[in-house]
Amino acid sequence: MEDTVNAAAERIRAAGAGPARPARDPVNLPMIRNWLEAIGDRNPRYEQDGLAPPAMTQVWTMRGLHPAADPTDPLSAMSAVLDQAGFTSVVATNCEQTYHRYLRDGERVEVRSRLVDVSGPKRTALGEGWFVTTDSTWYVGAEAVASMTFRVLRFRPPGSVAATPASERTAAASDVLRPVVTRDTSFFWAGTAAGELRIQRCGRCGRLRHPPGPVCRQCGADRQDHLVARGTGEVFSFVVHRHPPVPGRRLPIVVALVELTEGVRMVGEVLGADPAQVRIGAAVRVDFVRVDAELTLPAWRLLP
């Protein structure tokens, strides 16, 4: 079962972005008003200037009451595979939307989505399931106006049939190479687990340093402290890794050496990026990949 899911995921992922799917209607004031009213948003700007609230971006391309089957849509295709494997329930877990500009009344948008990652099976509070991550970009003509990374959990409701035998359960997380953590470096990993990117700072002279170590190279002090990085930086260099396999990852992956705004450099995977779009100098923001209770990895996402 697990191999079937992984093989399907790889196939769908390799197929890349599906075709552009146009919104049913152009951006329009009646729907904007309905939304503002239901949400309780009294910001006058939208009606005055004929702008759509940014959080409505996805609304324009929702499929409606009777959605047609769309095998070319990566999320639909992956959902069908997981449905077949018994993971019939779904819950959204993460949604990150970036708005390059606000949409205007009358504009016609279309959306293209691609499957980024399928990981599992994992035990969750809801039951055993798979996390499915997609990236979507909305366009007006050729102009990208917004993008979204969306993650859902497809799970088998507890009590349902055919629980996977334990022997088949080799979560991809267990394959990820784990860092050697010492007293000198544990603050960093405690930080990622807490959603903080920590940079070592000398407790005496304040010098920042990464990778960290027990003694300040500037003043010799062994009192180490840290600050929480802003989480932004620029790609200093990067690699598109295609061969050989990397445990716990589906290739290709983009790994970047990022120069943080604070001045230190740090290596991390660039998530959800088309390798062809990554450039030296590109702005990135930190993200965190929770592997399991013990390990959360820092990673990067390109900023628009």
Binding site: I39, G40, D41, R42, N43, P44, R45, P53, P54, A55, N94, C95, E96, Q97, T98, Y99, Y102
Partner: peptide
Amino acid sequence: QRYVTDWAGATAMVHRVAV
């Protein structure tokens, strides 16, 4: 989004919402 723009005012421009 609404919660933050209620506070930030009508001239606010939201660049990103991550939940």
